[in-house]
């Protein structure tokens, strides 16, 4: 438990992000707008991870209709917390 970090919430227009240690890059995305935006959000998450230089982590995202700016902010905040926990 101590190894994971969580950001965001399950409020509408927000998303809950959890990061856990992993050997590889894994994205587990559940969204209430699956039909229209699953691929888009998946790409947003992997692009943000790449931009932040994250190579291996397990990302769990439970999305409640969050817009891009929110998903990105929640993920960046999670990565910073994760780094603080593991490197800091």
């Amino acid at each position: 438990m101590k190894e994971t970090v969580t950001t965001g919430s399950l409020e509408s227009s927000d998303c809950l992000i959890r990061l856990e240690p992993s050997e590889q890059l894994e994205i587990d995305l559940e969204t209430d707008v699956h039909e229209a935006f699953y691929e888009h959000i998946h790409t947003l998450i992997s692009d943000t991870l790449e931009e932040m230089g994250v190579q291996s982590v397990y990302v769990r995202c439970k999305d409640q209709g969050a817009l891009d700016f929110t998903i990105r902010a929640r993920l960046i905040a999670a990565i910073e917390r994760y780094r603080e926990l593991h490197d800091g």
């Binding site: 229209a36 935006f37 691929e39 888009h40």
Partner: peptide, 9 residues
């Protein structure tokens, strides 16, 4: 804000 949704089948 939302992006353009993929057409729904």
């Amino acid at each position: 804000y939302t992006g353009r949704p993929k057409p729904i089948t």
